[in-house]
Design a binder for these strands. Structure first.
Length: 877
RNA sequence: GCCGGGAUGGCGGAAUUGGUAGACGCAGCGGACUCAAAAUCCGCCGGUAGUGAUACUGUGAGGGUUCGAGUCCCUCUCCCGGCACCA
C-alpha cells in the first residue's frame, strides 16, 4: 500500500488548511456580482474551552456556508466573542487572575480549537465585546436613547447578600442563600437604568406573523412572552392615609383584570408587600410588619414565585367595590409583585384557581358570578371551564345577569368609565429591560454623578469610558468602587469634581448588535454603508435557549437603531435555525455553606439499575458518593462539557464534523454519546480508499448517451441520482443528518457496482465520485478537498470551494415500471408492478387480477379502490 | 407553576409532512480471511408463534377522527429548554 492509499486525517487536514490559509479563501468583501448570503452563529462566551454544543453550532453554520458558496452566493461567516460576563469574575475570585487576562487567554485557546475544526470563518472581522472600540458604541447608543427617553431611571429589585455585601445574580442564589457566604438573601430596591422595550411591544409582536423564516416554536414563545392582553384597569376606592395623614394615591387602588365580567365576584383584594397601602397598614401592626419583612426575603425569580406557597395576611383595612359599594377586605399577598402592573390584584375565588386556593386557605367567601349551560358549579373545587370566556354568562351579578362573559366585560368597563374609576386597557406581560449591573466586567454606563448637577451623561467626545482591565474582583461588591482613578472625574456641566457611575451594562446589550459590527469592524461610526450590504442577516444559528431573551433584545435594539436612522430594516434576522441543545449527565455535591460543586462525567463512576437508569454515582478521585442531577445542557459552569480536541486528535476534524452532523437533526436535542464516532471515521477511510483505488481508472466524459448503456450502468446512475435528489432536498431544509445517510448510500452503491468491464463504467464511476465529493464537501471539507485534487477534478471543474452544485440528470431517474404497495383495508398485503404511465383503469385491472385480492377479500365485494399516485393502492372491502 | 419542545429497536436516528415503520449508522450475533488477533469482507438483526412461506403484534400511556395515523384531535406520564442578573 502506498502512503496515498492510507487515510491519514491529520496530514490531509493540515494540507487542506494550509492551502486555504495561503489563499485567504474565506475573506469576504462587498464587491461581488453574486447575491450575498450572510450567516452568523451566536457568538460564544469565552468560557475556556469549546464543547460539543459549540462544535455542533459552528459545523451547521460551516456546512451552510460551503453549500451556499457552491450554489453561487457571496457568503460571509464571521466570528466573535461575547467577552464580558460573570464567569470571568468568578474565575478571578478563585485564581486571583484579572478577568481581562483570563478572557483573552480563553479567546486565544478557543480560537485555536475553532481553527482545528476547519471552519470557513473570515477572521479579519473578529470582534471581542470587551474591546473599547466595540463597547464605545454601546455607550454611544445608550446616551442617544437616554436623550430620546428610551432609557430611564427607576428602582429595581436585586438579590442582596448581607454578609458579602454584594449583589448576586440569580445563578448565585441557591435555595435562597448566597453561594459563597451561605447567608439568607434579601431583596433590595436600587436605582437602575431601564430600556423601554415595552414601547416596541406592539411592533415586536406584530412582526412575528411575517417572520416565516423563523421556527414556529420560537415565534410562539416570543408572542407569549410579550403577552398582549385586553382587559380593564380600574380602582377600588379607600380612605387609607399615610403617616403624615395624606390620602394614599388619591384614595384609589388600581388593579388590572382580563376578566372584568367577574368583578361582581370579588371577595378580597391583595397588594404586594412593598405597596404603599401595605406599608400604611403595617405601621401599627407589628405582625403584618413582620410578614412584610418575610415577603422581602426569598427569591426574585418568577419560577420560584410561581411555585412557592401562596401566603397572605389581612391588613385590617378594607377598600370599596367600585360598582357595588361593598366593603372588600384588603390583604397582603406574597405572590403579588410590586413590579408587575399596579402591585395590587382583585380576588375572585370562584373563577380563578389561585384566588380559589387563597380563599380556601384563609376562609374568605367564594361567590359564583359566572355559570355555564349544562354544568354545575361546586364550591368544593376549582373548575376549569370557568376559564372559558366563550361559554359563560353572568349570574348573581345584578344588572349584568344573563349577559355573556364577553358582553359583560364591555358593560362593566363602560360603567367603571362612567364613574371615572376605570377603562379598557391593553397590557403586555413584557416588562422594560433593566440593564444596570452592579458588576465590574462589563460595559461602563457612561454617566457622571455631580453633587450640583445630578446625573450627567458623559459627553460624546469623551467616549469611550474605558474600563480598567487590571481589577480583580474578590466577592465583596464591585471592585470599581475601590478604583479612585476610575471614579474621580470632573462634571462635564459645571467642571467641579464628580464621581463616575460604576454600574456596568447587562451583557445582553453587547450581543444586541455585534452581528452588524462584523460588517464594518473598523468603522469610525457605529455602523457604515457596508452594514447595508450584509444586513439583514440571511441566516442566524444558535441554541434554542436564546429563543426569547437575546433574540427579543436584538430585535428591539435593531428597531431603536432604525428609528435613529442608523439602519434601514425592521428586523435583523431573516431566517433562524434554533439548534437543539447538546446534553450530558450532571453530577454535583452540596458544599457545607449550601453552594454546589459540580463533577465532570469522566470523573465519575455510575451504577445503573436493570432498566439502565442511573441510581447512584461516586467520584473516582475520593470514592465518595456524588448526587446525580439528571441531564442538562453542556456548560462549563456545570462541568459537563465534552471537549472536541481529544476526538479531533484521535480521528481528525472531518470525523468529528461528520459524526456530529450525522448524530441527529440540527434542531433536535441531543444526548451526548461518542458511540459511533468510530463508524464515521470508518466511512471516511472507506471513501478515501475507494476513491484513491479508482483514481487511475475514471474519466470525466460528458458526451455519453447514457440510455444506450448497459442495465447495470443505468441502474447505478438511477440509484446515484435518486439519492442525490434526496440529498438536495435535505440540504435545502438544513437536515444534514440525512445528507450524511445519502452520502453513505452513494458510497455503498458505488462499491456494489461490479460491471467494471462496461465501456461506460469509468465515466459512470467518475460521475458518481464527482457527485459524492460535492455532496460531502460541506460536511467533510478537508478530505473531499484533497480527494477532489487527487482525482484531477479541479483541472476540469476548478477548486471544490467554488465549483457549482451538482445537477440531477432527470433522464437517469426515468423508469419503465414502478412498484406500487398493495393494501387491503389499510393492511400491507403485497406489491404490484405497473407501467410508469399506467392509467387508473389499468391499475384497477391489475388489482382485480392480483392473487392478494383473491386471497384476502374472500369474495367480498370491493367497496372502493384508493390510488395514491406512484405509491400505493388500498382496496376497501 | 406558566410558556415552548420532545418521547420510534439494545443505542443514535429515518419515514419528502396522512400512504410500505425502523432508511443510514452504532452495538451485537453468525460466517470468510488469518498460525492467531486486529483490520477488512459477506450474512442476520423490533417482539411473539412457526423449520419455513407466513400470521399476529408494534412508534411513552389511554381514548378518538380516517379507507389508512409515528404523523391530526382530546386526556395523561416522564424528560429537555426558557421564566427577565448564567450566557
Amino acid at each position: 500500500m502506498t502512503t496515498d492509499e492510507l487515510f491519514q486525517a491529520n496530514r490531509i487536514e493540515e494540507d487542506a488548511q494550509a492551502a486555504w490559509r495561503a489563499g485567504d479563501v474565506y475573506r469576504a468583501d462587498e464587491c461581488s456580482d453574486k447575491p450575498k448570503f450572510y450567516c452568523v452563529s451566536m457568538l460564544p462566551y469565552p468560557s475556556g474551552k469549546l464543547h460539543m454544543g459549540h462544535v455542533r453550532n459552528y459545523t451547521i453554520n460551516d456546512v451552510m456556508y460551503r453549500y451556499l458558496r457552491m450554489k453561487g452566493y457571496n457568503v460571509l461567516m464571521p466570528m466573535g466573542w461575547d467577552a464580558f460576563g460573570l464567569p470571568a469574575e468568578n474565575a478571578a475570585m478563585k485564581s486571583g487572575q484579572a478577568p481581562a487576562k483570563w478572557t483573552y487567554d480563553n479567546i486565544a485557546y478557543m480560537k485555536k480549537q475553532m481553527q482545528a475544526i476547519g471552519l470557513a470563518i473570515d477572521w479579519s472581522r473578529e470582534i471581542a465585546t470587551c474591546d473599547p472600540a466595540y463597547y464605545r458604541w454601546n455607550q454611544w447608543l445608550f446616551l442617544k436613547m437616554l436623550e430620546k427617553g428610551i432609557v430611564y431611571l427607576k428602582t429595581g429589585t436585586v438579590n442582596w447578600d448581607p454578609i458579602d455585601q454584594t449583589v448576586l445574580a440569580n445563578e448565585q442564589v441557591i435555595d435562597g442563600r448566597g453561594w459563597r457566604s451561605g447567608a439568607l438573601i434579601e431583596k433590595r430596591e436600587i436605582p437602575m437604568y431601564y430600556m423601554r422595550i415595552t414601547d416596541y411591544a406592539e411592533e415586536l409582536l406584530a412582526n412575528l406573523d411575517n417572520m416565516t423564516g423563523w421556527p414556529e416554536r420560537v415565534r410562539t414563545m416570543q408572542a407569549n412572552w410579550i403577552g398582549k392582553s385586553f382587559g380593564v384597569r380600574f380602582a377600588f376606592t379607600h380612605d387609607i392615609r399615610d403617616e403624615r395623614g395624606a390620602l394614599i394615591s388619591d384614595g384609589k387602588m388600581y388593579v388590572f383584570t382580563t376578566r372584568a365580567d367577574t368583578v361582581m365576584g370579588v371577595t378580597f383584594c391583595a397588594v404586594a408587600a412593598e405597596h404603599p397601602l401595605a406599608m400604611a397598614a403595617a405601621r401599627n401592626h407589628p405582625e403584618l410588619a413582620a410578614f412584610i419583612e418575610e415577603c422581602k426575603r426569598g427569591s426574585v425569580m418568577e419560577a420560584d414565585m410561581a411555585t412557592m406557597e401562596k401566603k397572605g395576611m389581612s391588613t385590617g383595612f378594607s377598600v370599596t367595590h367600585p360598582l357595588t359599594g361593598a366593603s372588600v377586605p384588603l390583604w397582603v399577598g406574597n405572590y403579588v409583585l410590586m413590579s408587575y402592573g399596579d402591585g395590587a390584584v382583585m380576588g375572585v375565588p370562584a373563577h380563578d384557581e389561585r384566588d380559589f386556593a387563597f380563599a380556601k386557605k384563609y376562609g374568605l367567601p367564594i361567590k359564583q358570578v359566572i355559570a355555564v349551560e349544562g354544568e354545575t358549579f361546586s364550591l368544593n373545587g376549582w373548575q376549569e371551564w370557568y376559564e372559558d370566556k366563550q361559554r359563560g354568562y353572568c349570574v348573581n351579578s345584578g344588572s349584568y345577569d344573563s349577559l355573556s362573559s364577553v358582553a359583560a366585560i364591555d358593560a362593566v368597563a363602560a360603567d367603571l368609565a362612567a364613574k371615572g374609576l376605570g377603562e379598557k386597557q391593553v397590557t403586555f406581560r413584557l416588562r422594560d429591560w433593566g440593564i444596570s449591573r452592579q458588576r465590574y466586567w462589563g460595559t461602563p454606563i457612561p454617566i457622571i454623578h455631580c453633587e450640583t448637577c445630578g446625573t450627567v451623561p458623559v459627553p460624546e467626545k469623551d467616549l469611550p469610558v474605558v474600563l480598567p482591565e487590571d481589577c480583580v474582583p474578590d466577592g465583596n461588591g464591585n471592585p470599581l468602587n475601590k478604583r479612585e482613578d476610575f471614579i474621580n472625574c470632573l462634571c462635564p456641566q459645571c467642571g467641579k469634581p464628580a464621581r463616575r457611575e460604576t454600574d456596568t451594562m447587562d451583557t445582553f446589550v453587547d450581543s444586541c448588535w455585534y452581528f452588524m459590527r462584523y460588517s464594518c469592524p473598523d468603522a469610525e461610526t457605529m455602523v457604515d454603508s457596508r452594514n447595508d450590504y450584509w444586513m439583514p442577516m440571511d441566516q442566524y444559528i444558535g441554541g434554542i435557549e436564546h429563543a426569547i431573551l437575546h433574540l427579543l433584545y436584538a430585535r428591539f435594539w435593531t428597531k431603536v437603531m432604525r428609528d435613529m436612522g442608523l439602519v434601514k430594516f425592521d428586523e435583523p434576522f431573516d431566517r433562524l435555525l434554533a439548534q437543539g441543545m447538546v446534553l450530558n449527565h450532571i453530577f454535583e455535591r452540596r458544599t457545607d455553606k449550601g453552594g454546589v460543586k459540580y463533577y465532570a462525567p469522566e470523573e465519575i463512576e455510575i451504577e445503573r439499575d436493570n432498566i439502565g437508569k442511573i441510581v447512584s454515582a461516586h467520584s473516582l478521585a475520593d470514592g465518595k458518593p456524588v448526587a446525580y442531577a439528571g441531564i442538562g445542557t453542556m456548560s462549563k459552569s456545570r462541568s459537563n462539557g465534552v471537549e472536541p480536541l481529544d476526538l479531533i486528535d484521535r480521528y481528525g476534524a472531518d470525523t468529528v464534523r461528520l459524526f456530529m452532523m450525522f448524530a441527529s437533526h440540527p434542531e433536535a436535542t441531543l444526548e451526548w454519546s461518542d458511540a459511533g464516532v468510530e463508524g464515521a471515521h470508518r466511512f471516511l477511510r472507506r471513501l478515501w480508499q475507494y476513491a484513491i483505488g479508482k483514481s487511475a481508472n475514471i474519466t470525466v466524459q460528458t458526451n455519453i448517451v447514457w440510455k444506450e448503456q448497459s442495465k447495470a450502468v443505468r441502474r447505478l446512475r438511477f440509484d446515484l441520482h435518486s439519492t442525490l435528489k434526496q440529498a438536495n432536498f435535505d440540504y435545502e431544509r438544513a437536515q444534514y443528518n440525512t445528507v450524511v445517510s445519502a452520502a453513505m448510500k452513494m458510497l455503498n452503491t458505488l462499491e456494489a457496482f461490479n460491471s467494471e468491464a462496461d465501456a461506460a463504467a469509468p465515466a459512470a464511476i467518475g460521475e458518481g465520485l464527482n457527485i459524492l465529493l460535492r455532496v460531502l464537501y460541506p460536511i467533510v471539507p478537508h478530505t473531499t478537498y484533497i480527494l477532489w485534487e487527487k482525482l484531477g477534478f479541479d483541472r476540469v471543474f476548478g477548486s471544490l470551494l467554488d465549483t457549482t452544485w451538482t445537477q440531477i440528470d432527470e433522464m437517469a431517474l426515468q423508469q419503465d415500471e414502478i412498484e406500487l404497495v398493495l393494501q387491503i383495508n389499510g393492511k400491507l398485503r403485497g406489491k404490484l408492478l405497473v407501467l410508469a404511465n399506467a392509467s387508473r383503469e389499468d391499475i384497477e385491472t391489475v388489482v382485480r387480477a392480483s392473487d392478494e385480492v383473491a386471497r384476502y377479500t374472500n369474495g367480498k365485494p370491493m367497496k372502493k379502490i384508493i390510488i395514491v399516485a406512484e405509491k400505493l393502492v388500498n382496496v376497501v372491502v
